[in-house]
């Protein structure tokens, strides 16, 4: 569904982002420097792939609250495989992603099979996976170090680590999946009116299970990115990440009611949130101020988007 309104939406978000960059450029001395943007580029991939999965789930009318915990669990599994079992990265990384996929599959089967609202199912999995993550890691931070750091090292010509193009690839693929495939169309349709889709003879359950599976697997991918950047696996990682991802998705123009949204928009939402975070940190803002400003910007962005939508709805 890439059409003119979508493009104008993305354009609007880019403007918002530029405004934030300009503002911090004025306020913080060294904000407009290459270092800021390489740091940002390093930080974006994990949140971006999580937001991509979340977008697909939200478009289909669901929500996945478990992503943060699933990410921590996958990170712990990755850390364990590398440090304790001495697995090579080539085997440990797929294992981490599979772990995420398994958690996602559980979410999907419970949601679609037992017809429990995804809010409740994933809320449950949020707790379960956090617990598993503590159990797997023995509540200990696992240091991996040199084994995984190459992933986070800047690539020779790009100046950014390999995780950045990888995340972009994920985002673009997810966008294409959403707008150009039958599966994506089914997600949009289910998010609009699941009953009508079922009565059109479409297997809504399969689509729903698949979308949660994807979201889980992408949380696994995010875990690999995050662990690579920090060189260690933190069983406490990703607390509250689901809320950041939902905020990014909503800022990106996806409706929490389902039925409409875009992955590229969510990427821009992630960009806005991460830039805000980086800028406030560079300003040395106090914790209370950080929280208030971040909350304010989320509300303002969503309100502005709602206003824009209403204005354009009045026109046709």
């Amino acid at each position: 569904m890439i059409n003119k309104t979508r493009l104008s939406e993305w354009g609007g978000l880019v403007l918002v982002w530029l405004a934030i960059v300009a503002l911090f450029g004025l306020l913080a001395e060294h904000f407009l420097s290459a270092a800021t943007f390489t740091t940002l580029a390093g930080r974006l991939p994990a949140l971006a792939v999580i937001a991509a999965g979340m977008t697909l789930v939200v478009v289909s009318g669901g929500i996945d609250l478990s992503v943060g915990s699933v990410m921590a669990l996958c990170g712990a599994v990755l850390g364990l495989a590398v440090t304790q079992w001495k697995w090579p990265l080539l085997a440990a990384v797929p294992l981490a992603i599979l772990t995420g996929a398994a958690a996602g599959l559980t979410n999907g089967l419970l949601t679609a099979g037992l017809r429990i609202p995804s809010f409740l199912v994933t809320l449950g999995l949020l707790e379960v996976c956090r617990g598993l993550s503590y159990a797997v890691s023995g509540s200990r931070t696992l240091f991996i170090g040199a084994g995984i750091e190459p992933l986070a090292r800047p690539l020779p010509f790009l100046g950014v680590p390999a995780t950045v193009p990888a995340a972009l690839l994920v985002v673009v693929t997810a966008q294409i999946l959403l707008s150009k495939t039958v599966f994506g169309r089914h997600l949009v349709a289910i998010g609009t009116n699941e009953n009508a889709v079922r009565l059109a003879g479409i297997d809504t359950r399969r689509a729903k299970v698949t979308v949660f599976l994807l979201s889980g697997a992408l949380a696994g991918v995010a875990a690999v990115f995050a662990v690579a950047r920090l060189g260690s696996a933190d069983p406490n990682a990703g607390t509250g990440l689901e809320l950041a991802a939902i905020a990014a998705v909503v800022i990106g123009g996806t409706s929490l009611a389902g039925g409409t949204g875009s992955v590229i928009g969510s990427l821009l939402g992630v960009l806005v949130i991460a830039t805000l975070e980086a800028g406030l940190a560079q300003l040395g803002a106090s914790e209370p101020l950080k929280r208030m400003v971040t909350g304010g910007v989320i509300i303002a962005a969503v309100a502005a988007d709602g206003l824009r939508r209403r204005l354009s709805a009045d026109r046709d």
């Binding site: 740091t39 930080r43 406490n236 990682a237 980086a278 914790e287």
Partner: peptide, 24 residues
């Protein structure tokens, strides 16, 4: 500069990166 990392690795990482940029 002094900021709260909330005891967390990820948050401290983001803050450290920003501080390193701002104070070369």
């Amino acid at each position: 500069d002094r900021q709260s990392g909330q005891w967390e690795m990820e948050k401290a990482n983001a803050i450290a990166a920003a501080v390193l940029t701002e104070h070369p």
